[in-house]
């Protein structure tokens, strides 16, 4: 069946089956590889995408449910250079293997949009659905807090 959706600002019409999962369709048909396959059951967050600005686990969404929605992945927010948050993640050496990074960048981006000046607890809460096995989260949380303060200063 036909599926129309927007991915990173670009309109797509795709041929999908009813059982197809959005994560697979994004990776295999659209070629957007930053959402990763980590558990396929909603536990790890490595497949996180933004759907109409809200973070969702794309392994739990059927492709047909994305009809008409606006999807953003890390590729989408990186076209025009890194965001302030991404720059801080880089300069802070926040990630190690980086497999969790696309999901965490998006979860943190969403958080900063909803709450430009989050507390440590807010950051922990926003990232609690994204598992990272390498970093112990500390350097990731630090960078998000730093990005938050930066945004808080701008009126």
């Amino acid at each position: 069946m036909n599926l129309e959706l927007k991915v990173n600002g670009e309109q797509w019409v795709l041929d999908v089956a009813a059982a197809d999962v959005l994560l697979d369709v994004l990776r295999e048909q659209v070629g957007t590889k930053s959402p990763k396959v980590g558990c396929e059951r909603g536990d790890c967050g490595s497949c996180t995408i933004l759907m109409d600005g809200r973070s969702v686990r794309s392994c739990l969404v059927l492709a047909v449910e994305a009809e008409g929605h606006d999807i953003v992945t890390v590729e989408g927010i990186s076209y025009e250079g890194m965001s302030q948050l991404q720059d801080l993640f880089i300069s802070n050496n926040s990630f190690q293997c980086g497999f969790c990074a696309p999901g965490i960048v998006l979860s943190a981006t969403e958080l900063l949009e909803l709450n430009p000046n989050p507390s440590r607890h807010d950051v922990q809460e926003a990232l609690a659905g994204n598992l990272c096995r390498c970093t112990g989260y500390e350097p990731i949380i630090d960078a998000v807090l730093a990005a938050g303060q930066g945004q808080g200063e701008t009126p």
Partner: peptide, 12 residues
């Protein structure tokens, strides 16, 4: 700064 930092944060 990690030389693989940009790769990993940009989705590359």
């Amino acid at each position: 700064v990690r030389i693989d930092g940009l790769d990993k944060i940009s989705g590359a």
